[in-house]
Design a protein around this nucleic acid. Structure first.
Lengths: 252, 252
DNA sequence: TCCGCGCATTCCGTTCACCGAAACGGGGGG
DNA sequence: CCCCCCGTTTCGGTGAACGGAATGCGCGGA
């Protein structure tokens, strides 16, 4: 949001944005400070947001994101809309492997995790439904980047690429080659590129116009499987989901 | 929202609320009409919401709920926060049965579905993640109502109760008895009360202070199982989730 | 072809919704 | 007692927000 004079809408949105996974509940003063609005303004806007249900205020006086906001947000076609279509296929993939299954979409230069199914014994992963991550390291991220518009690819490669582990590929030229291989192979592999103990294989999901709109991946413990063995599974799930997203009356 | 003069925040929220499962995408005029704001106002506010990501405008000029809103809303403790905790148990329940698994919370006089896992061959159910439903007919609804504050129960029973099928219990006295049985038994059964072909068994999930904060259910095709056989499964899942919600450092 | 309708976008004079500094009261700690 | 932080309320000033009107566009029907 711009500095100085800000619209009411901008302030309200800034207040919603003040909540993060690290700060899921906030006092009024914290909320005002994080949103960059004065205390009385935060107080007034918060009262409205609470009355509507976008925020909830607990007995402790602290604010949290409210269920009503989530209800409305659940209508986002690229969020739960996509997830609803994909869910049966994600379930199948999970059931066969009992490993992490992830569904993600690209948002600008990042990915957003739309769904994640993980059993209790699956390898821990640094992802959260609704959370964002870089494109260049994860399996789903690589798929989304490989199929993104060229401008997006070049933009992503022009920025400094964070090295999550010694195996993360941060050299733009190497990454370009990798992205070309992803497009050629029809799947991406991320081996120890996010955490050293995790291997993920991801495949592209195509939407109504055959453009890649999301990616699905399996994340397993490194050294427990070969990517080649996992790829057909993941690709089958991706193809199934793509089929469901294909054009038809009232389609997505 | 009040009539006549309305705050900016109220108008913005009314615009978000204009989207429904039946109308997930709207033209500007439709959005303005549904939200009860003038066209220029809707145009201005929509532009801000789109810039921030709460709404997305497609090439067709139509507006949809945006991914950014969902990202923020994913932080709702009673939404995906609860779902994250419950997911492994829901998965277990799904895997044993391959039937519909549902997770819901109470919001006023209605329930909101927080999660739903359904295989491709499960009985069709009238539920949608993020959607609302009455309390008096579904398994999860009965559990939530049975454990709701007395004022809520009396309020719900005082309203006209919709009969989804001839088997739906709409008589307040009969419903009171049923709710008492739910509390006694530790689970609820809804047999043909929502759709004639569906039987659901639900159990309460308790939060940090042992109060019932959610309910989990299994929905199967009627006449394919006995509630008594399903109840222990559902209750085990509910107990597992409750355990994860129990007080502990940084707990939910 | 012309006309009517609905749509989306922009303009502009008016006004009241919104603002934040300040005040107030409460709680906790030294 | 003083200090600090918090949350809530007050109130005069003002500019952000408003909507009717105008404009231009596309579409369908006569």
């Amino acid at each position: 949001m711009g500095e100085g004079a800000r619209s009411v809408t901008a302030k309200v949105l800034a207040m919603l944005e003040a909540f993060t996974p690290a700060t899921p509940d906030l006092s009024l003063s914290e909320l005002a400070r994080r949103a960059g609005v004065s205390l009385p303004t935060a107080h007034r806007r918060a009262a409205e947001l609470v009355a509507w249900g976008a925020l909830e205020r607990g007995a402790d006086g602290r604010y949290r994101i409210g269920l009503r906001l989530w209800e409305v947000a659940a209508l986002a076609p690229r969020g739960l809309g996509l997830r609803d279509v994909a869910m049966p296929f994600l379930e199948d993939l999970y059931e066969v492997t009992h490993e992490n299954v992830q569904l993600a979409v690209r948002e600008g230069l990042e990915l957003v995790f739309v769904e994640r199914i993980a059993g209790r014994h699956a390898v821990p992963v640094l992802t959260r439904v609704g959370g964002r991550f870089a494109l260049h390291a994860t399996g789903v991220g690589l798929v989304l980047l490989a199929h993104a518009p060229v401008e997006v690819q070049e933009q992503a490669l022009a920025a400094p690429l964070h090295a999550y582990t010694p195996k993360t590929i941060t050299d733009p030229d190497r990454l370009r080659e990798l992205l070309a291989a992803v497009r050629r192979n029809g799947y991406a592999v991320s081996d120890g590129q996010v955490t050293l103990d995790a291997l993920s294989v991801a495949a592209p999901i195509r939407g109504a116009d055959a453009a890649v709109v999301a990616a699905v991946s399996l994340v397993v413990r490194a050294d427990t499987a070969e990517p080649i063995a996992l790829a057909p599974l993941v690709q089958a799930a991706a193809r199934g989901i793509s089929r469901m997203l294909a054009p038809r009356p009232g389609g997505w």
